[in-house]
Simulated scan of single mutants.
Amino acid sequence: MNINRRRGAIAFFITLGAILVGLAVTLNVGWVVLNERTVALAVLGIILFSVLIAGVVLNTVFLVREVRRNERQDSFLNAVTHELKTPIASMRLYLETLQRRPLDDAQRQQFYKIMLADSDRLLATVEQVLKAGELGQRHRQQNRTLIDLEPLVADCIAVSLQRHHLPSDAIQLDPVPGAVRLRVLGITEDLRTAVLNLLDNAVKYSPEGVHVRCSLAITHYTWVTLRITDTGIGLPSNQFKRIFKRFYRAPGRAMLRIKGTGLGLFLVRNIARQHGGDATASSPGLNKGTTITLTLPLANPTTQTAAVATTTA
C-alpha cells in the first residue's frame, strides 16, 4: 500500500513539473511575441524563462529523490523490525518451553545452542545499525595500527563458518601469491566489520549452496585487493553501484525472499573509503554469482616502520 502511494506521489510530482514547464514555455513564448520589437525585454524574458525552468526541474528532481529516500528508509525500518523481532520471539518461545516442560539434558543443550545463535543474530543487527550511524557522521579521528590482512580475513572466515554452521570447505581463502605480508594502516574493528559483512552477504545470497572463494593480492604495486566470490543469485549490471547505497536492496523476487537491513555493503564501502580505498561489485549475470572487491592502500615501508616504533614505545 505504501509503495503504491509513493509511486503515485512520484507520478504526481513528475506530472506537476511537466505542467509547470509547459506553462512556463507558453508564458515565455507569449512574452517574446508581445515584446518582439524590444530586444532588451525579449532577452530578459528568455533569461527569466531559463531560470524558471531550471528551478522547476530542480524542484521536481528534489521531490522525487526525497520520496524515494523515504521509501528506502521505510523498507529499512521494516527490515530492522523483522531482524530484531524474529530472534527475540524465538528466544522467548524456547525459554517458555524450558520453563513449562521437563526436558532431558540433550534437548536443553539444543535449546541453549539455538538461543545463543538467535542472540548472536540480534547482536549482529544492533551492531550493524550502530556502526552505520557512527560512520554516517564525520570521519572519526582514531589512532590507526598496522594490520596484517591475511590472518584478519582467516579469522573472519572462521567466525562466518561457525555463525552459519557451514562445513570448513564452504568458504576458502586462497594462498597469498609469493607468501608476502599484506599490511594496511587502519582500524582493526572497522576492517573486521567490513570483511564479516562481505562474507555474510556471500553466504546469505547463496541459497542453493555456499561456495565462497576469497583471495588477497597486490595490485598496481601499492594496493591490496580482497576479492570475495560466491556462486549465488548474482546481480544485473545496473545494480553494481546501487547496492552500496544506504538502505538500498536490489529488486527481484529472489532478493526479496532474503532478509536484510540494506546496510551491510553501505558499511563496507564507507569503511573502505575512510581507509583510502574503495569497494566495487561485479557479476556475470543473474544466478551466476557475485564478486565484491575491497581495495585498500598498502602500508608503505616508512609507515610500517613508524607504526612498529609507536607500538614498541
Rank of each mutant, 00 (worst) to 15 (best):
S168L: 15
C156Q: 14
A170H: 05
Q142A: 15
G136C: 05
P177R: 11
D169K: 13
Q162C: 02
V159Q: 07
V176Y: 11
K131A: 08
A158N: 08
H164P: 06
Q142D: 10
H165L: 15
D174R: 12
E150N: 05
R163L: 05
G178F: 07
Q172S: 08
C156G: 05
L149G: 00
V176Q: 10
P175Q: 06
A158Y: 02
R140A: 10
D155V: 07
T125F: 04
L161W: 00
D174I: 08
V159M: 03
P175I: 02
E127K: 12
A154G: 15
N143C: 06
P175W: 01
V126Y: 13
H139I: 15
E134D: 11
N143E: 14
L149R: 01
L166E: 03
Q172E: 09
C156W: 03
N143H: 15
V126K: 12
L166I: 02
P175D: 07
Q137C: 14
R163E: 06
D174A: 15
G136N: 13
L161T: 00
L152M: 01
T145P: 00
V126H: 11
I147P: 00
A179P: 05
L135N: 06
G136K: 10
R144A: 01
P167M: 11
P167D: 11
L135F: 09
H164I: 09
D155L: 09
A179D: 15
C156Y: 02
L152N: 00
R140F: 06
L173T: 00
P167V: 12
Q162R: 07
E127F: 06
A154P: 08
G178M: 08
I147H: 01
Q172V: 15
Q141R: 07
V176I: 13
A179R: 12
D174V: 09
E127R: 11
E150F: 00
R138V: 14
L146D: 02
R144Q: 04
L146M: 07
G133R: 15
S160G: 10
P175G: 02
S168V: 15
A132Q: 09
L149S: 01
R163H: 04
R140K: 15
Q162L: 03
V153F: 01
L161C: 02
L161Y: 00
A158I: 04
C156P: 04
E150S: 04
T145G: 01
L149F: 00
A132T: 14
C156D: 11
L166C: 01
E134V: 14
V129F: 01
G178T: 09
V159N: 03
S168F: 10
K131E: 10
V126Q: 12
P167K: 13
T125K: 08
L161R: 05
A132K: 06
L130K: 15
P151V: 04
V153L: 04
G136P: 05
A158M: 05
D148A: 06
I171L: 06
A132V: 08
